[in-house]
């Protein structure tokens, strides 16, 4: 028996149609005079790798937070796997630009990745051998198997991102919301991270990623949506290679 944190059993509705749909979505930060995202619409099919591109204040992080259930929808519709936001928390993983993770916390990389199982276990249940097997497989998938027993403070910036992706795999998340995952990482890390995401999408995962700018070849996304001042905007001329 599962005593889930939000009172609902983990939902795994079959994916029929788009994974993520926004229709005329307006989102405002609590207490803000103006909405940060206005009348925004987007449809993301399963297996897609979508980049939300824009400068600071464009509304891309706001959209990801709303899709993760961290900001309330003021008006419009926002559906994840055909359910209102929060209807299937297990299947959504959100990696914020600056995670609130305490990287000095005394846990190993395996412990961190194992927290991905918490949403499935709920209150009172402890992770078992099957959960730990998922952790090992996820760490192998992201190339961190050797670092599993190490403390998390020993991870580099790129390895931290991979560890968080491993946690989302352990969580069995099918929609990954990544806020500036490639910010402040070197070109090699950027390339290998892009390859990892591409591989996950080929396996059916869906990625929506916020970024200031795309890499030159456009290998990090197969579709770009440009945002400016809370609205969808036209593609700037420096990104002609990624279909908008």
């Amino acid at each position: 028996m599962i005593f889930s944190y939000d009172g609902h059993a983990p939902a795994f509705p079959p994916v029929i149609g788009p994974v993520l749909i926004a229709r005329g979505l307006t989102v405002r930060y609590p207490g803000a005079a103006e909405p940060a995202l206005k009348e925004f619409s987007l449809s993301v099919p399963a297996g897609a790798r979508v980049a939300l591109v824009g400068s600071n204040g464009a509304g891309k992080s706001t959209f990801l937070k709303a899709a993760a259930g961290l900001l309330p929808v003021e008006s419009g519709e926002l559906e994840v796997f055909g359910l209102p936001v929060g209807g299937c928390r297990c299947r959504v993983a959100y990696l914020p630009q600056q995670p609130e993770i305490d990287w000095r916390f005394p846990v190993t990389v395996e412990d961190l990745v194992l927290t991905g199982r918490d949403a499935h276990l709920g209150w009172f249940r402890r992770p078992g051998s099957a959960d730990r097997l998922r952790v090992r497989r996820a760490l192998e998938r992201v190339g961190l198997a050797a670092l599993g027993p190490r403390p998390i403070h020993e991870l580099s910036g790129g390895q931290r991102q991979r560890a968080l992706i491993a946690r989302s795999l352990t969580q069995e998340a099918d929609l990954l919301l990544l806020d500036e995952p490639l910010n402040a990482v070197d070109a090699e890390t950027r390339f290998s991270f892009g390859e990892l995401l591409a591989g996950l999408c080929r396996e059916g995962k869906t990625v929506v990623m916020a970024t200031h700018h795309l890499g030159g070849s456009g290998e990090e996304a197969d579709r770009a949506v440009y945002l400016s001042d809370g609205h969808e905007s036209d593609a700037p001329c420096e990104h002609p290679e990624v279909p908008a």
Partner: peptide, 19 residues
């Protein structure tokens, strides 16, 4: 596991619905 997650990563804890 709940107190550990709420201390280690409050952001993720909120997303999965921890009170």
């Amino acid at each position: 596991k709940e107190w550990m997650l709420a201390t280690l990563d409050p952001g993720h804890a909120r997303i999965i619905g921890l009170p």
